[in-house]
Design a protein around this nucleic acid. Sequence first.
DNA 1: TAACCGTACTAACACAGATAGTACAATTAA
DNA 2: TTAATTGTACTATCTGTGTTAGTACGGTTA
Lengths: 122, 122
Amino acid sequence: MLSLNYRDSRPIYEQVRDGLRRLIITGAIPPGDKLPSVRAMAGQLAINPNTIQRAYESLEQEGYAYSVPGKGSFAALPQDVTDKRREELLAKLDAIVQELVYLGMTPADIGARCAAWKEETK
Amino acid sequence: MLSLNYRDSRPIYEQVRDGLRRLIITGAIPPGDKLPSVRAMAGQLAINPNTIQRAYESLEQEGYAYSVPGKGSFAALPQDVTDKRREELLAKLDAIVQELVYLGMTPADIGARCAAWKEETK
DNA sequence: TAACCGTACTAACACAGATAGTACAATTAA
DNA sequence: TTAATTGTACTATCTGTGTTAGTACGGTTA
């Protein structure tokens, strides 16, 4: 379901958050479905529950999940994702395009690549 | 020339590296031009020279700069930028497109946005 | 009732980031 | 030649964040 890379310099809770987000946007976890419990995922990944909780808090701040005490954490609807997150993505997109253009690609090249994007379950 | 954000959680040396990269890809520092010396930039930003050196090392690993002992550090040519860096950019691009599609945008929308990109000196 | 859930603390530890200081060889300008 | 500047390489120290460990409470479910 999820894997950690201890050679990666990124904090574990960020890796968990990004991994869960990926499971959601790829459809592996449909909106409304229950996410693994904090303790279950901590046990599975052999890390501390506090670290998982931190990942869930971060994911919840983005709008990708919501939690109900006593019940569990669930994947939210795409509509619930924060505008802040959308703006971040577009800003990153622009920065990447700018650098790729500097490196020789044309905006048309990049645009074509994006337009041809398919769900390849990467 | 450059500015630091101490509220940002990102390490200073990464902020410096990204800032310098931006100056290069925007054309503010043309290829072949000399970058500020380690000590000069450290003094200007009021931080430790070691931190600047670390930023330069990272920038050099990407291929955006090269250093000559006794002379200084210089902006490299776009051709010198590592293939690794290019691959990273394309991988990030794909991930962003995937998430934007999940959030409701069509690949055509995103492609059009990229193709319409202009040098706005952001 | 018992087991699970999210959540909220406190305390302690490990490590990366950052600072401070020093040093050396190569280059440049005086 | 001399003096100043450059990149580079160390060591030592400090701080903050990430992580772990343990405990606890209220709500939900079987």
